[in-house]
Simulated assay, not measured.
Amino acid sequence: MAVADRERWDDRHRAAGAGVPAPPDALRGHEQLLPPSGKALDVACGRGTVAAWLAGRGLDVVAVDVSPAGLAAGAALVASSQPPGRVRWVEADLDRGFADGFPDETGPYDVVVCQRFRDPALYPALADAVAPGGLLAVTVLSEVGDAGGPFRAPPGELTTAFAGELEVIAHHEGAGEAHLLARRR
Rank of each mutant, 00 (worst) to 15 (best):
G17W: 00
G19D: 12
G19K: 10
V20C: 12
A22I: 07
P23W: 08
D25N: 06
D25Y: 13
D25P: 02
A26L: 07
A26V: 03
L27N: 09
R28K: 13
E31N: 09
Q32L: 12
L33F: 02
L33I: 06
P35Y: 13
S37I: 04
S37Q: 14
G38F: 08
K39S: 11
K39L: 12
A40W: 06
L41I: 02
V43T: 03
V43G: 00
A44Y: 06
A44R: 01
A44V: 00
G46M: 12
G46N: 07
R47A: 15
R47D: 14
T49A: 15
V50T: 15
V50W: 10
A52Q: 09
A52P: 11
W53Q: 08
L54Q: 09
L54S: 03
G56C: 04
G56M: 10
R57K: 15
G58D: 11
D60W: 13
V61C: 01
V61Y: 01
V62S: 06
V64Q: 00
V64L: 02
V64I: 11
D65V: 00
D65L: 05
D65E: 07
V66D: 02
S67V: 02
P68T: 01
A69D: 13
A72D: 13
A73L: 13
G74C: 03
G74P: 01
A76Q: 13
L77V: 08
V78Q: 10
V78I: 08
V78C: 15
V78W: 03
A79V: 07
S80K: 15
S80D: 15
S81N: 13
Q82G: 11
P84S: 11
R86Q: 14
R86L: 10
V87K: 07
V87M: 02
R88Q: 14
R88H: 11
R88W: 07
W89N: 01
W89T: 01
A92E: 00
A92D: 00
D93I: 04
L94K: 10
D95L: 13
G97T: 06
G97E: 04
G97V: 05
G97N: 07
F98T: 04
F98P: 05
A99W: 13
F102V: 04
D104F: 00
T106K: 15
Y109C: 04
Y109D: 01
D110N: 12
D110W: 12
D110E: 15
V111Q: 06
V111N: 00
V112R: 04
C114S: 14
Q115V: 01
F117D: 07
R118C: 07
R118K: 14
P120R: 14
A121W: 06
A121M: 11
A121E: 13
L122A: 10
L122P: 09
